[in-house]
């Protein structure tokens, strides 16, 4: 529907509220916020144990691991693709970190750097396969997922090594009573939102996702944009791995299973499609999923049912159709 918006021009000048402009700009995506509020309110009313402060804190802390990954997945999905390899990258990063360090504090920083580079190269591989070799995104990341998972299992079949106790700060430390990982998440969220809204690269991610061909014709280096995007996704997966490894004190080759599904679901819930999306809305999706899991746990619903439900949510969200073109 083509509309010559003559009146909204003056509207645009008048409106001042940040929230209002945000809601207007992301009208479709912000539906998730309403869902989030509804679920939260319903839970507060009907489930007594939900209302405690520590439970709320719990939900937020739990949301961190999915949160980091989903931010990366959002970038990828806005660019028109999907990253199925994040789960396996988390597994590999977690095992390598814990396995190589094996309790020795002096290895901590170099190994973390090494793992970051390894994780980044997976993203690089994905980006190159997709932009230069013209793989479909899900094929490329499906293949790299298998590859990385294979390497992980080759390295170890069981949780390897251990982490020095100092490292547990990553997951458990607090700054002024606020959990450190939460602060990190907020920072990453803010940075991601800033990049997507204000930096040239960020706008190009939307452009590439909206129409790859036209973007290329307009002079954008689409290969560079795509590669950077997938590297970001993998790096955030590594950050997630650090968080999870810190929390458990040890790595785990299976820790990344289901992460891809969940991050894609969260992003879809936040209204992410190719060419459109917002990391804030995705995070609302993350919180919603977290809250639902929290509620179901309180109601003693088995994890198997929860798994089935998560798959059903993905299919349901996607059922209303994905924007084509």
């Amino acid at each position: 529907m083509a509309t010559i918006s003559t009146t909204s021009s003056s509207e645009a000048q008048q409106e001042s509220g940040v929230v209002r402009s945000f809601l207007r700009k992301y009208r479709e995506q912000s539906l998730i916020f309403y869902l989030l509020i509804v679920v939260a309110v319903a839970a507060t009313i009907f489930i007594p144990s939900f209302r405690t402060g520590s439970n709320a804190r719990n939900i937020f802390v739990q949301s961190v691991s999915l949160g980091f990954v989903s931010i990366g997945q959002t970038f990828v999905m806005i660019s028109g693709g999907f990253d199925l390899s994040v789960g396996s990258v988390i597994s590999l990063a977690s095992c390598l970190t814990s396995g190589i360090i094996d309790g020795r504090l002096e290895y901590l920083v170099p190994v973390m750097l090494l793992v970051i580079i390894i994780g980044g190269s997976v993203g690089l591989l994905n980006g190159v396969l997709i932009s230069k070799l013209h793989f479909a995104p899900f094929i490329a990341t499906f293949a790299s997922m298998s590859l990385v998972q294979g390497v992980t299992y080759l390295y170890t079949k069981y949780p390897p090594g251990s982490m020095p106790s100092a490292f547990s700060y990553f997951a458990n430390g607090t700054i002024a009573f606020i959990p450190f990982p939460l602060i990190l998440l907020v920072l990453v969220l803010a940075a991601a939102a800033y990049v997507l809204a204000r930096r040239k690269y960020g706008r190009y991610v939307y452009s590439v996702g909206s129409n790859l061909e036209f973007s290329r014709l307009s002079g954008i280096n689409t290969a560079k944009v795509l590669i950077i995007t997938y590297v970001i996704s993998s790096l955030l997966a590594v950050v997630t791995a650090f968080f999870l490894t810190s929390r458990m004190g040890i790595g785990d080759p299976n820790i990344g299973s289901d992460v891809e599904i969940n991050s894609i679901t969260a992003a879809f819930l936040g209204g992410t499609v190719n060419g459109r999306g917002s990391v804030l809305c995705t995070y609302a999706g993350v919180l919603t999923l977290g809250m639902i899991a929290n509620i179901l746990n309180m109601l003693n619903v088995s994890s198997y049912w929860q798994m089935a439900l998560r798959g059903a949510i993905l299919v349901a969200v996607v059922l209303r159709g994905i924007k084509t073109v």
Binding site: F82, D258, I261, I264, Y304, W305, Q306, M307, A308, L309, R310, G311, A312, L314, V315, V318, I322
Partner: peptide, 12 residues
């Protein structure tokens, strides 16, 4: 996406 979602549901 669909078949992935169905796979998860079936797993569950």
């Amino acid at each position: 996406v669909v078949t992935l979602g169905v796979a998860v549901v079936l797993n569950g």
